[in-house]
Design a binder for these strands. Structure first.
Length: 481
RNA sequence: UCCCCGAUAGCUCAAUGGUAGAGCGAGCGGCUGUUAACCGCUAGGUUCUAGGUUCGAGUCCUAGUCGGGGAGCCA
């Protein structure tokens, strides 16, 4: 990092300072969390300063002999930005092992410079008190300064890095599938239109419809709802690939588990069947949760204390427990026999409700379950038809408490079967011409799955609302910031 | 999209149809190697918007806006 002044020691992050050996002169840049004053030792102020590099702030002990003590230090409030130079020392107080002693004596050379005060501390939106998440959502530009949102941001980063590391270590290539898609055939929900046509003076065809031939791409275009079909093309050339990027759904669903813009991870593996897909999914989830526990113990301890007191136990259980594998058909008959009274009755052919999934994972099997081979009529056209003719090679990973965390399938690699499925679902073969080409030219068995990144973060942190695990949530009626 | 709940000080919330309050935060002072600090004082309000009922509306009625919970759909 560039130093702002030649006479100061190099800037050190709060994270590194908290781990460093006492005795060293350091400079810290950060923001004030709290200030406490004392008349002891001729006058002291204690500043908690954070810079986001780790969960904990560092304590700076400011001496009243500082030239700007009366004028500036005694007016520091939450949110002020400061540059602190001093000596790392073992703390005399409880609650921290090291602190920065800021003593202006010539042999100490301590100093504090205020880079920015807070206008009108009375109305500073991130006052030093508890705030509701609903309120903090309205100040999404300031909420990363809080404990919770700082911790979420670090965990989100850690998980993203772990995703790439997991695949990289296993020889997967990261494929950047397009954000804008002109194919209207991804079939995973309502799409956002991408257009440069003048909405007021819309060019029309003879029959009065908007004339998309005059649009930017010469045809209708949308934001992607899934990179899967595109990434399959790379799996059928590079064998092991994945996408990890933003996706968009224009569904008018307003829940704590849905966003209009979210990030999705979709691996795709050639020469792989459903069992191999399930094995990969299990290893993947375990790797990610292990990474976050190992790399962010400070943030996880916070989530476990303040957000969800079972979150660490839940993650540890997921990591060490082999997942149960069960067919959809067996799951349905098990649920039918379990004697539980469901709001929605279970029977073969219907999709499982969340109450069914919870009963299965929490009361019957008591561990994560990978359900396989669902009825073809409740699943997508590209899933491989099983020999029984009525189920497809699909799998969902279900976990106790958290429900579905992954959905995947072996893809239909046989052109004639794929075409029959397209016909059955009244989809146009012409629209899928390039997808069908993969089956015409050297087709191979392949499989993959999808995992919603924000839901993963919810599971890992215990955060209840998905709007609080993405920096700037987009939901129906809200694209502020 | 459907059902339910809510909107009052910077924030979290009180207030029988009759003078709008508290806690936290903030400011000032006191005390203390402090750390969810503590003690005292002070300031802070177009009660979401627009109509309506009433002698009188934060409170009741209508519509709207925004937020939350649940459902559906899914990731």
């Amino acid at each position: 990092m560039t130093t702002l002044s030649a006479s100061r020691p190099a800037t050190i992050s709060v994270r590194d300072a908290l781990r460093a050996e006492p005795g060293r002169r350091v400079s810290i840049h950060g923001w004030v969390r709290t200030r406490r004053d004392s008349k002891a030792d001729g006058g002291l102020s204690f500043l908690a300063v954070h810079d986001g590099s780790c969960f904990d702030p560092i304590q700076a002990v400011l001496r009243a002999s500082l030239p700007n003590y009366e004028q500036e230090v005694l007016h520091l409030t939450a949110g002020c930005s400061v540059e602190i130079t001093g000596e790392l020392v073992a703390s005399q107080g409880k609650g921290q092992s090291v602190e920065v002693n800021v003593d202006p004596a010539p042999e100490k050379g301590g100093a504090i410079r205020v880079l920015g005060f807070v206008d009108d501390p009375d109305t500073y939106p991130v006052a030093q008190k508890r705030h509701t998440f609903e309120y903090l959502r309205e100040i999404a530009h300031l909420r990363p300064r809080t404990n919770t949102f700082g911790a979420v941001a670090r965990v989100r980063h850690t998980l993203a890095m772990a995703v790439h590391r997991f695949f990289h270590e296993r020889g997967f290539f990261w494929i950047h599938t397009p954000i804008i898609t002109a194919s209207d055939c991804e079939g995973a929900g309502q799409m956002f239109r991408v257009s440069t046509l003048d909405a007021v003076n819309m060019p029309r065809t003879k029959d009065g419809q908007p004339d998309y031939a005059q649009d930017f791409f010469g045809r209708q275009a949308h934001l992607t709802v899934s990179g899967q079909l595109n990434v399959e093309t790379y799996a059928c050339a590079l064998s092991k690939v994945y996408t990890f990027g933003p996706t968009f759904r224009a569904e008018n669903s307003n829940t704590s588990r849905h966003l209009a813009e979210f990030w999705m991870i979709e691996p795709e593996i050639a020469f792989c069947d459903l069992a191999g897909d399930a094995d990969l999914a299990e290893a993947f989830v375990k790797y990610l949760f292990k990474a976050v526990l190992e790399e962010r113990p400070d943030d996880m301890a916070f989530f476990n204390e303040r957000i969800d007191t079972t979150v660490i136990k839940t993650l540890e259980f997921l990591i060490e427990t082999p997942f149960e594998r069960m067919t959809y058909t067996d799951a349905v008959s098990t649920l039918e026999k379990c004697g539980e009274a469901f709001e929605y009755p279970v029977k073969w052919g219907v999709d499982l409700q969340s109450e069914h999934e919870r009963c299965l994972t929490e009361r019957i099997v008591k561990k994560p379950v990978i359900l396989m081979n669902y009825p073809k009529d409740i699943k997508a056209f590209y899933m491989r038809l099983n020999d029984d003719g009525r189920t497809v090679a699909a799998m969902d990973v279900l976990a106790p408490k958290i429900g579905e965390i992954i959905g995947g399938s072996q893809r239909e690699e046989r052109l004639d079967v794929l075409d029959r499925r397209l016909d059955e679902m009244k989809l146009s073969k012409a629209d899928y011409w390039w997808y069908r080409d993969l089956r015409r030219y050297g087709t191979v068995p392949h499989a993959g799955f999808g995992l919603g990144f924000e839901r993963l973060i919810q599971f890992a942190t215990g955060m209840a609302n998905i709007r609080d695990v993405i920096p700037f949530p987009r939901t129906p009626g809200n694209a502020e910031f």
